[in-house]
Design a protein around this nucleic acid. Structure first.
Lengths: 212, 212
DNA sequence: TGAGAACAGCACCGCGAGTACAGTACTTAT
DNA sequence: ATAAGTACTGTACTCGCGGTGCTGTTCTCA
């Protein structure tokens, strides 16, 4: 289950930068971006204000770096899960169903549940960021739509849908379910809710492409 | 479609209070709670700081009032939609499907799309609020679970589910889809995405309880 | 017409973001 | 061995914002 991909040694500066981003992510997901003070980050990271501004030119720069790192980690996780699913089955439908099971498993295995989606958090604070940061969140959404949409297209070719559904909307549905499931889990403090929602989406996919 | 329920006359103070809440809601949904300054609210409302503190004892009090008003409006809307659906059919499944269609229609008819969910926004800033406010968001989630869950129970009694699903999770799925759909719509600036997600959920419900 | 409702005005505090700039310890290439 | 970065520390300041407290003042309605 554990695969150590690219564990290259980080320089001292990179370590500090990562530590700052870790602390920031945790704070932003609980207090919002504006509610997260630099003093607090600095204090927890054990550095000074000057040290912080050595790594990031201002708060917006920090926010952008945090988002970019999150998007990259997210993409790596899904690349991995989709690749593993593809290795387990050549059939597009079976592979996608395996992927969804793996996705649910990974979410269920998180000790304190999913910490929260940076993209969702940013969407609810879009006016706090520069345009390029806002564009990144939209671009990310479109990436998932394309990625899952292509898989659903392949599935639909081999398994004619039993009901008339918009495959693009069905691709969007997974990101919606994930974001909504995270909100559910967070608000009720029940990490099991997110994986349950993913499995419900999986049941829907199965039910759309396979008859009784 | 338009039904003017309880259009009682508001006193001058109540009007100001409502205006403050309107401005706050708009700001909070775009900048987060901490990112919304009182000065900005005051300026836009055309009052002074003293005027503001006459209506709310502090910022947390404003946040709580905003949430309470949102929860009440939300509840009124769903009460209305569910009642109208019940009037159109005695069958629990058909009524629920009609309700979902009405829900999608109302969301599609919003000129600029759904402005955003205060509950979702607050969940991503929980540490900015006192415990009683956090409890309100969780309590609201449980209310929807119970409300939709009871309907699904009734449906399941008459229409044995074609697949094994957890009805509680299926009730949660609607709130997840709504919250996720709002995030989708907001990030891609496409109001049509939310109603599409609701209709996909509707298709899922239909597919769970009705055979091919 | 008087009493409360609904504010305005002002003065003040502490915190947080951001700027500027000088200095320093540690590391690495030549 | 030394010079050139790298990765910071320390100090000192500005300005906007949340919040408090108190004294008025105007409006509204019974």
């Amino acid at each position: 289950m554990v695969l150590d991909m690219s564990v290259r040694v980080l320089s001292k500066g990179e370590q500090t930068r990562e530590r700052i981003l870790d602390i920031t992510q945790d704070a932003v997901l609980h207090k919002g971006f504006a509610g997260t003070s630099l003093d607090e980050i600095i204090c927890e990271a054990g550095i000074t204000k000057s040290g912080f501004f050595y790594h990031f030119k201002d708060k917006n720069d920090l926010g952008k770096a945090l988002l970019l790192r999150y998007l990259e980690q997210e993409a790596q996780l899904f690349d991995d899960l989709l690749r593993r699913a593809d290795e387990l089955s050549d059939d597009p439908l079976h592979s996608f169903l395996i992927f969804l099971k793996l996705f649910a498993d990974v979410m269920a295995d998180m000790p304190n549940g999913h910490p929260g989606c940076i993209v969702a958090s940013y969407v609810y604070q879009d006016h706090m960021f520069s345009q390029d940061v806002r564009d990144l969140t939209a671009f990310d959404m479109l990436r998932w739509r394309k990625r899952f949409g292509e898989r659903l297209q392949l599935i639909a070719q081999r398994y004619p849908p039993r009901i008339d559904v918009d495959l693009e909307a069905m691709a969007d549905m997974l990101t919606a379910i994930a974001d909504g499931g995270i909100i559910l889990s967070k608000s009720l403090h029940d990490p099991s809710l997110l994986p349950k929602q993913i499995l419900l989406y999986r049941a829907f996919v199965q039910r759309v492409f396979v008859s009784d």
